[in-house]
Amino acid sequence: MSLPFTALADPTRRRILDLLRRRPHLVGEVAGELGLSQPAASKHLRVLREAGLVRVRREAQRRWYGIDPAPLAELDAWLSPYRRMWQESLDALERHLDEGRGTEEEP
Protein backbone atom coordinates (compact mmCIF):
# COMPACT_ATOMS: atom_id res chain seq x y z
CA MET A 1 0.00 0.00 0.00
CA SER A 2 2.83 2.44 0.70
CA LEU A 3 4.20 2.34 -2.85
CA PRO A 4 1.03 3.85 -4.42
CA PHE A 5 0.89 6.49 -1.67
CA THR A 6 4.54 7.35 -2.24
CA ALA A 7 3.95 7.63 -5.98
CA LEU A 8 0.89 9.83 -5.47
CA ALA A 9 2.70 12.15 -3.07
CA ASP A 10 4.22 13.97 -6.04
CA PRO A 11 1.86 16.55 -7.61
CA THR A 12 3.29 15.96 -11.10
CA ARG A 13 2.40 12.29 -10.89
CA ARG A 14 -1.13 13.18 -9.77
CA ARG A 15 -1.38 15.48 -12.80
CA ILE A 16 -0.23 12.61 -15.02
CA LEU A 17 -2.93 10.34 -13.59
CA ASP A 18 -5.51 13.07 -14.22
CA LEU A 19 -4.33 13.20 -17.82
CA LEU A 20 -4.36 9.42 -18.24
CA ARG A 21 -7.85 9.25 -16.76
CA ARG A 22 -9.18 10.61 -20.05
CA ARG A 23 -7.36 8.15 -22.32
CA PRO A 24 -4.00 6.38 -22.73
CA HIS A 25 -1.12 8.63 -23.79
CA LEU A 26 2.35 8.29 -25.27
CA VAL A 27 5.29 9.65 -23.24
CA GLY A 28 5.68 12.56 -25.66
CA GLU A 29 2.02 13.49 -25.27
CA VAL A 30 2.32 13.45 -21.48
CA ALA A 31 5.44 15.61 -21.69
CA GLY A 32 3.84 18.07 -24.10
CA GLU A 33 0.55 18.46 -22.29
CA LEU A 34 2.17 18.93 -18.88
CA GLY A 35 5.17 20.99 -19.98
CA LEU A 36 7.72 18.36 -18.95
CA SER A 37 10.82 17.15 -20.69
CA GLN A 38 10.44 13.69 -22.18
CA PRO A 39 13.00 12.20 -19.74
CA ALA A 40 11.12 13.72 -16.78
CA ALA A 41 7.79 12.37 -18.08
CA SER A 42 9.37 8.93 -18.56
CA LYS A 43 10.75 8.98 -15.01
CA HIS A 44 7.36 9.86 -13.50
CA LEU A 45 5.60 7.25 -15.62
CA ARG A 46 8.13 4.63 -14.51
CA VAL A 47 7.41 5.43 -10.84
CA LEU A 48 3.66 5.19 -11.48
CA ARG A 49 4.15 1.90 -13.34
CA GLU A 50 6.31 0.44 -10.55
CA ALA A 51 3.63 1.46 -8.04
CA GLY A 52 1.10 -0.43 -10.15
CA LEU A 53 -0.94 2.68 -10.93
CA VAL A 54 -0.36 2.67 -14.69
CA ARG A 55 0.20 -0.04 -17.23
CA VAL A 56 2.05 0.03 -20.52
CA ARG A 57 0.82 -1.30 -23.83
CA ARG A 58 3.52 -1.69 -26.45
CA GLU A 59 2.64 -1.05 -30.04
CA ALA A 60 5.75 -1.46 -32.22
CA GLN A 61 8.12 1.30 -31.05
CA ARG A 62 5.40 3.15 -29.16
CA ARG A 63 4.43 2.73 -25.51
CA TRP A 64 0.93 3.72 -24.48
CA TYR A 65 0.42 4.48 -20.80
CA GLY A 66 -2.98 4.08 -19.20
CA ILE A 67 -4.38 3.88 -15.68
CA ASP A 68 -4.64 0.53 -13.92
CA PRO A 69 -7.77 1.03 -11.81
CA ALA A 70 -7.21 -1.92 -9.43
CA PRO A 71 -4.69 -0.20 -7.10
CA LEU A 72 -6.85 2.93 -7.08
CA ALA A 73 -9.83 0.83 -5.98
CA GLU A 74 -7.68 -0.60 -3.17
CA LEU A 75 -6.70 2.93 -2.11
CA ASP A 76 -10.34 3.99 -2.21
CA ALA A 77 -11.35 1.03 -0.03
CA TRP A 78 -8.59 1.84 2.45
CA LEU A 79 -9.64 5.51 2.59
CA SER A 80 -13.35 4.71 3.00
CA PRO A 81 -13.41 4.69 6.84
CA TYR A 82 -11.52 7.99 6.91
CA ARG A 83 -13.89 9.50 4.39
CA ARG A 84 -16.82 8.54 6.66
CA MET A 85 -15.01 10.15 9.60
CA TRP A 86 -14.48 13.37 7.65
CA GLN A 87 -18.09 13.34 6.49
CA GLU A 88 -19.34 12.92 10.06
CA SER A 89 -17.18 15.86 11.15
CA LEU A 90 -18.44 18.00 8.28
CA ASP A 91 -22.03 17.03 9.06
CA ALA A 92 -21.50 18.03 12.71
CA LEU A 93 -20.01 21.36 11.61
CA GLU A 94 -22.95 21.96 9.29
CA ARG A 95 -25.44 21.24 12.12
CA HIS A 96 -23.51 23.60 14.41
CA LEU A 97 -23.52 26.37 11.80
CA ASP A 98 -27.24 25.82 11.09
CA GLU A 99 -27.99 26.13 14.78
CA GLY A 100 -25.97 29.35 14.94
CA ARG A 101 -27.82 30.79 11.96
CA GLY A 102 -31.13 29.84 13.54
CA THR A 103 -30.43 31.85 16.68
CA GLU A 104 -29.27 34.88 14.70
CA GLU A 105 -32.38 34.92 12.49
CA GLU A 106 -34.84 34.89 15.39
CA PRO A 107 -36.03 38.34 16.60
Rank of each mutant, 00 (worst) to 15 (best):
Q87K: 10
P69D: 01
D91P: 09
A70R: 15
S42M: 04
H96Q: 15
E74L: 11
Q61S: 15
W78Q: 05
R57M: 09
D76F: 14
G100M: 12
E88M: 08
S42F: 10
H96P: 07
R95K: 10
R55H: 00
R84Y: 09
G66W: 07
R101V: 13
D76I: 11
E104C: 11
R58F: 14
S42A: 09
L75Q: 08
E59F: 09
G52F: 06
A41Y: 13
L53Q: 03
L72M: 04
A51C: 02
D68F: 02
E74I: 14
L75C: 02
R57S: 08
T103L: 12
P39I: 03
L53Y: 00
W78G: 01
Q38V: 04
Q87C: 00
W86Y: 08
L34P: 02
H44D: 10
E104V: 14
S80P: 00
L36S: 10
H96I: 03
M85W: 12
D98Q: 08
E94S: 08
A73R: 09
Q61K: 15
L48E: 05
P71F: 01
L53N: 00
R55C: 05
G35F: 03
V27E: 10
G100N: 15
S42C: 07
D68A: 15
A73L: 08
A92Y: 05
R46P: 00
L79T: 03
L97K: 09
V54H: 13
A70D: 12
L53K: 10
A60D: 14
R84K: 10
L72R: 04
G28K: 07
R62M: 15
V30G: 09
E88D: 02
A77W: 07
G32K: 01
E88N: 04
L93E: 05
R46S: 06
L34M: 07
R58D: 00
R46N: 00
L79N: 01
T103W: 06
E88I: 03
E74M: 14
R83D: 12
